[in-house]
Design a binder for these strands. Structure first.
Length: 206
DNA sequence: TGCAAACCATAAC
DNA sequence: GTTATGGTTTGCA
């Protein structure tokens, strides 16, 4: 039986779905109903039980979701259960979760590391059930545009993605390579994206 | 800039 | 099998 748990902090709600000490899904939204609704689109109603009193693991997982949301980074201490995804999608998600706070990667950059094409990577992001644990908000277009955001859950929108990136500013100025199971992956300081967006002034309309 | 064609893994049929 | 569908990319006018 899957355990769903949602914690509301002020005007934002964080939620996880857990099973056997692993996270099967995570999300955030405007309130508890919002988050639960997104979970119900991923799992059948009968397979999931909403916990009023969370297991210690669920509590820890929700904490992690909140940390990432607040821009504090990923400790990568909670295991993810990716088995309900296609093998290629799993590779993409694992590669993306290696992008450090303060950096972004392009769809094509991920594709280069895990194989396949940029478009396929975008598809994998769109089905990502682990927002923001798998930081799909750090994946942008090769021209340093935002790309898209908000596939599986209710929490979508480029505005949200933009806010994420602003919180994750760390003042880096040089690109670097991170290693993935497929090979090296080039990541860029999030500032590259932000300065370009602010210059183009398009972000004001998001 | 803007547009069109190539790209690639999935899900649905 | 085949088709439709994207959170893209690249080249060319």
């Amino acid at each position: 039986m899957l355990e769903a748990y949602v914690e509301v902090m002020g005007n934002i709600a964080f939620g996880v779905v857990c099973e056997n000490e692993a996270v099967c899904a995570s999300n955030f939204g405007i309130d508890e109903a919002d988050v639960l609704q997104s979970f119900q689109r991923m799992f059948s109603l009968g397979a999931m039980q909403v916990a009023t009193k969370p297991s210690s693991f669920a509590e820890k997982a929700v904490n992690e979701v909140r940390n990432v949301y607040e821009g504090k980074g990923v400790s990568q201490s909670v295991p993810l259960n990716l088995t309900r995804f296609a093998p290629y999608t799993q590779r993409v998600l694992r590669a993306v979760s290696r992008v450090p706070v303060g950096y972004v990667v392009s769809y094509g950059g991920v594709a280069q590391a895990v194989g396949g094409g940029a478009r396929a990577v975008g598809n994998a992001m769109a089905t990502n059930c682990f927002a923001p644990l798998v930081p799909c908000h750090r994946v942008v277009t090769s021209s340093l545009g935002l790309g898209g955001y908000g596939g599986a859950g209710n929490c979508g929108g480029l505005r949200v993605k933009f806010e994420f990136l602003k919180r994750e500013k760390r003042g880096y100025s040089q690109p670097k390579d991170v290693s993935t199971e497929g090979g090296l992956m080039r990541v860029f300081p999030v500032e590259f994206v932000l300065t370009k967006l602010e210059k183009s002034a398009i972000w004001k309309h998001i």
